[in-house]
Amino acid sequence: MHELGVVIGVVKKVIQVAESNQLQSVDTIVLQIGQLSSMIPTYIQTCYPAAVDGTMLEKTKLEIEILPANALCKACHQVFNIIENRSQCPHCDSDEWGLLSGKEFIIKEIIAQ
């Protein structure tokens, strides 16, 4: 489970940002995780309490937003979700596309109290 190491990295980064902005406390951390990311949201959520234990983030909430795996069809130029449509454009049935989103793993927001 490589998620624990990643979550520890997120915690270190959030603490660094909080300290450099002189935040006394953080209420919520919002992460965005793409549907095609190698990070599994359930595992991220499970690892989070261990990663924040003993830190200034110990009482923070973690929110996760899932970003869709969207692609642009090279034939008809329509945007579609490649997971929901099994990698085939629902508009023209083409399987030629370019990925627009879905591999992200982003700290979207740090909400202070």
Rank of each mutant, 00 (worst) to 15 (best):
N81W: 08
I83K: 13
N70W: 02
N70K: 15
E63P: 07
P68F: 01
C76Q: 05
R86W: 03
K61M: 09
Q88L: 03
A75D: 10
P90Q: 10
I83P: 01
T60R: 01
L62G: 13
C92Y: 14
A69M: 08
C76I: 09
G54F: 10
Q78W: 01
H91Y: 11
F80I: 10
H77T: 04
Q78E: 09
E58K: 15
Q88C: 11
D93A: 13
G54K: 05
D93C: 12
V79G: 07
K74P: 06
L67Q: 13
K59H: 15
K59D: 13
S87M: 09
C89Y: 06
L57C: 07
A75V: 12
K74V: 04
L72E: 13
I82G: 02
E63I: 10
L62P: 07
K61D: 07
H77P: 00
T60D: 00
L62N: 11
N81V: 09
K74G: 01
H77D: 06
M56C: 07
V79C: 07
E63M: 03
C73F: 08
L62S: 05
K61S: 13
E65P: 01
A75R: 07
R86D: 10
L57W: 05
N85L: 07
N81E: 03
I66G: 04
H91R: 04
L57S: 06
C76P: 10
N70L: 15
L57R: 08
L57T: 04
Q88A: 12
I66K: 05
I66Y: 01
L57I: 03
Q78S: 11
L62W: 03
M56W: 06
R86S: 08
F80H: 00
C73K: 08
H91P: 02
K59E: 15
H91Q: 10
Q78I: 00
L67K: 11
T55D: 10
T55S: 13
H91W: 04
I66V: 15
R86P: 00
Q88R: 15
D93G: 03
K61C: 04
T55R: 11
E84K: 15
I66D: 03
V79T: 14
N81H: 14
C89D: 12
N85A: 02
I83E: 06
C92L: 08
T60Y: 01
D93I: 11
K59Q: 15
L57H: 04
Q88W: 00
G54H: 03
E84L: 13
M56P: 05
N70C: 02
E63Q: 11
D93F: 14
N85Y: 02
E84D: 13
A75S: 12
P90R: 12
E65I: 15
